[in-house]
Design a protein around this nucleic acid. Structure first.
Length: 276
DNA sequence: TCCCAGGCTCTCT
DNA sequence: AGAGAGCATGGG
């Protein structure tokens, strides 16, 4: 349940919303934890969010802003408990779901998700964050003390040379191609949501630098295609380790993407524990 | 110095 | 269709 008071929005806690896990599972790159509070930007708005024993607090968020923005952003209308029952169909998936319980698949801005995961390729999460931060500071609209994610039009107009400030190497040309195609309408992001999954994936892969994995991440995190199952190095490790060559993500249908996120988080979690 | 990081493009079979 | 080199940059 949600209630509003003191200009804050309060979400009564259950097991299926953890802000730590949601922001620590590598799906978005613009939230940072500082002293128990997450501070970040989405859809051109800044959000401060923190978790107490019995509730999650969205600071300085009106009922109107909550209902029109953050409710969808955190995918709060979805029943993750029911989904987890579908995902828990073998021992590995069940363990992953238990460890990952509380992750919610954010419904991010389409362009931001696409652009962010183009940057993510063959890259590590701290540097991805750094590049995106530089991208926003250099090209995003200034909103008080922070910057919005830059529009495709702005990046297309800036040109590929100016993107060199990002120090993102060969990805600059990919960002530029995406910005160009989106800003001219050659790629219509709004229309992607109406497509079938396979068509949507092929459509996005017409952008230079967008392969199967980046397309799946964009579709999962930006377009709510919950069956998209991005196969990155971590997931390939999980599959090799626990499932083998016969693995088929359709066993989690239609929530492969959520299962993928659980397995991704689980593998990183397990590896983190092994390191200690 | 080499290896790795939420991979993709290009080339060669 | 499938395998492999090359690719910018930075951290360990």
């Amino acid at each position: 349940m949600v209630y509003f008071s003191n200009n804050n929005a309060y979400i009564e806690k259950d097991d299926f919303f953890s802000i730590d896990k949601t922001f620590d599972c590598g799906q978005c790159f613009r939230f940072e934890r500082s002293g128990g509070i997450y501070n970040g930007i989405a859809f051109g708005k800044r959000l401060e969010i923190l978790e107490e024993d019995d509730r999650i607090i969205l600071k300085n968020v009106s009922e109107e802003e909550f209902n029109t923005l953050w409710k969808d952003y955190f995918d709060l209308d979805r029943d993750y408990k029911a989904i987890n029952e579908i995902i828990c169909r073998d021992k590995v998936a069940s363990q992953a779901a238990e460890i990952s319980k509380g992750i919610r698949i954010l419904r991010q801005d389409k362009w931001e998700a696409l652009c962010s995961f183009i940057i993510s390729q063959n890259n590590n999460i701290p540097r991805i964050k750094k590049i995106i931060n530089t991208l926003c500071e250099n090209f995003g609209e200034k909103k008080g003390d922070f910057y919005a994610f830059p529009a495709a039009e702005v990046l297309a107009k800036a040109g590929v040379e100016k993107l060199s400030v990002l120090k993102c190497g060969y990805r600059a040309e990919y960002i530029y191609d995406a910005a160009l195609k989106v800003s001219t309408g050659e790629i219509d992001l709004a229309g992607v949501s109406e497509m079938e999954y396979n068509d949507a994936k092929k459509y996005l892969m017409a952008i230079k630098g967008v392969g199967p994995k980046v397309a799946d991440c964009a579709l999962l995190f930006g377009f709510s295609f919950l069956s998209a199952f991005p196969k990155d190095v971590w997931i390939k490790r999980v599959i090799d380790k626990y499932y083998g060559k016969t693995f088929d993500e359709s066993i989690f249908s239609p929530y492969g993407g959520i299962a993928q996120q659980y397995l991704f988080y689980y593998e990183r979690y397990v590896r983190g524990k092994d390191k200690k």
